[in-house]
Write a protein that binds this DNA or RNA. Structure first.
Lengths: 145, 145
DNA sequence: TATTGTTATACTCTATAACTATA
DNA sequence: TATAGTTATAGAGTATAACAATA
């Protein structure tokens, strides 16, 4: 049985994955915008809140971001007074939350939790437990560069 | 129990959704690149192959793309000789595959099918059936503009 | 008045190449 | 020689505003 045009797309997991992801990202962006930060920045604050310190390039690997793109990001967070960047060796930078960053990280945590809760509750109970493991199986840690 | 930094992120469905989506998109892009087309363009060919005709703005609604962004897309497809654009009323344009577009759509179909198959096979069998319904629940048809 | 298509524009995200300086 | 960080740049993707033509 071939279908209406909606069904064509709604039966392609890859396509629906893209649409679902973009819908959720835009919802999260809306929740974060009062804090004046974007999603990547929120994620960085979250990581630093849990981990205290991480080198800039380790953070790149953790988040799947290219070093070249991390630089302006980290500079912006530093300019906002949210993180410090300290040299460990002569080539590595170590990122750490400031007082102000730590406070903001707390607010981020609340927003993310509520966002994740709302997300998971949209999925019917029978499917919920299967969702995260399925997604993790698609997560691809590819060595870039 | 709190965790290593990987687990922090891997336990956030929204974040994992983003990473999974971006991983799958880059895999698909790699498969499509020999055809010289991007994912949106592939999707448009697919829709037109199933539906023969669709107006440009209906296509926008179907794919969640803004009219302003569809224009250059459609023009490019037309310049490549893959679609025709014909006026229906004085303001609407109707998109339709050319012979050449139809041939390419066939190749796209093969690539997408194989991509979707590979995607779904990465998910362990117990979770597979739950994946698509969960994603569809997150798909958000928001009226833009 | 609402809709269709277009143009111009801007911001984010991502990617590559080239460079420096350190290990 | 490999790694860390930076700069410059280019390509997608997406968003808004303003406009003309048409329904």
């Amino acid at each position: 049985m071939q279908q209406n045009p909606d069904d064509l797309l709604r039966n392609l997991p890859g396509y629906v994955l893209r649409r679902a992801s973009s819908a959720m990202m835009s919802k999260l962006a809306a929740r974060l915008s009062p804090l004046g930060i974007r999603q990547v920045e929120a994620t960085i604050l979250l990581v630093l809140a849990q981990q205290r310190k991480i080198s800039q390039s380790d953070l790149c690997r953790l988040l799947g971001i290219k070093r070249a793109n991390m630089t302006p990001l980290a500079i912006r967070l530093e300019e906002q007074g949210l993180i410090k960047r300290q040299a460990t060796d002569g080539r590595s930078l170590c990122l750490e939350l400031t007082e102000r960053g730590s406070l903001l990280a707390g607010q981020v945590q609340i927003i993310i939790e509520s966002h994740e809760k709302a997300l998971i509750e949209r999925i019917s109970p029978e499917h919920r437990a299967h969702f995260l493991p399925a997604l993790v199986a698609l997560w691809d840690d590819q060595e870039s560069e």
